[in-house]
């Protein structure tokens, strides 16, 4: 199958009764990308992933994995994908190597010797060789995540769908995960990974999309997404040479595009501004012309975390 994209999502919609979990999402992910899907809890990430993983039937829309329609060619799609669910469950009655060997067996990865070799390879990839004989349930959260990642890699899938793979991992493990995913992408696999921590994804993903309340808010390269979501509303701090914060606040209230004015001290005002760069320069010039002694006038760039908090707060307000 010579598919042009690893994942194609067209007009995807998922309803639970009257609740719309995912609404009209369109997305195309090329091969070899590490793609991040970010959004607060309840944004629709897991529902989207379940549809991608052929575990849930969408209400509407078309989803293709490496060219295979997930509804019409489910078995073919399953052969090329690897799915790691949120919370990465493991059975309580198996040891690590037994768990992996079982899944290698279900994927018919050859003789017992060949399967065990592949198990060792995958364990080495996630740095868990020393835990091969441990009981799955005795592992820490991070180790469990890595075991399930190893299971997901067993059959060398073309498309990896990882739901919150970094949750519960310590910084070192996160770095290892990031490197592992980037290595996989270099080998040609496409990785789609979700998280509610935008910064975490920005580090490991070449592209991102942000979801909230079932809708896709922005998608593209990490920097573009940051700009698209972060620059709509600038947060500006004006530092004055004298105690003029209240006067400046009163004056700012009359200006267009200025909102949420808050004097943080007698000589400092923080506000949000929706104008572009030229409008910002005009605002500063007017402020000086007005006679206010502006010692500093700077814009604080929104971090990924702040953007997501704002998205989530918007979620709560609405």
């Amino acid at each position: 199958m010579s598919a042009t994209s690893a994942i194609e999502i067209k007009d995807l919609r998922v309803d639970y009764g009257h609740f719309v979990a995912v609404e009209d999402i369109n997305l195309t992910i090329p091969f070899g990308e590490v793609y991040g899907l970010v959004g607060p809890n309840g944004a629709g990430k897991t529902s989207t992933f379940k549809v991608l993983a052929t575990l849930m039937e969408q209400t509407y829309g078309e989803v293709r994995i490496a060219g295979h329609d997930v509804l019409e060619e489910t078995e073919a799609a399953r052969r090329v994908l690897g799915y790691m669910p949120d919370l990465a469950p493991v059975p309580s009655d198996l040891r690590v190597w037994e768990f992996l060997n079982f899944h290698a067996d279900t994927h018919a990865l050859g003789s017992r010797k060949a399967r065990l070799e592949r198990v060792e390879e995958c364990l080495a990839r996630v740095n868990l060789t020393d835990k091969r004989n441990a009981w799955c349930k005795k592992l820490s959260r991070g180790q469990t995540q890595r075991v399930v990642l190893a299971k997901t890699l067993l059959h060398r899938p073309q498309v990896l769908i990882l739901d919150e793979p970094a949750s519960g991992l310590d910084p070192l493990s996160r770095r290892e995960l990031r490197h592992a995913l980037q290595d996989l992408a270099k080998e040609g696999a496409t990785v789609i990974v979700s998280s509610h921590i935008l910064g975490e994804l920005a580090e490991m993903c070449s592209s991102l999309c942000v979801m909230n309340q079932g809708e896709l808010l922005a998608s593209g390269a990490s920097d573009d997404v940051l700009q698209e979501l972060g620059n709509a509303e600038r947060r500006i701090t004006a530092v004055l040479a004298s105690d003029q914060a209240n006067d400046v606040s009163e004056w700012l209230e009359t200006r267009e595009g200025v909102e949420a004015i808050k004097p943080s001290s007698k000589s400092e005002v923080v506000f949000t501004f929706t104008g572009d760069e030229a409008a910002k320069a005009n605002l500063l010039a007017s402020c000086i012309q007005r006679g206010f002694l502006v010692a500093d006038f700077h814009e604080k760039g929104s971090s990924f975390e702040e953007i997501l908090v704002e998205v989530a707060e918007g979620n709560r307000v609405s």
Partner: peptide, 20 residues
């Protein structure tokens, strides 16, 4: 590109002892 190795070479369904 990673090659999926899971092209089905499963044992026949009736061979219960070979069922994973």
């Amino acid at each position: 590109m990673m090659e999926s190795q899971s092209t089905p070479q499963q044992a026949p369904t009736w061979k219960l002892w070979a069922n994973p």
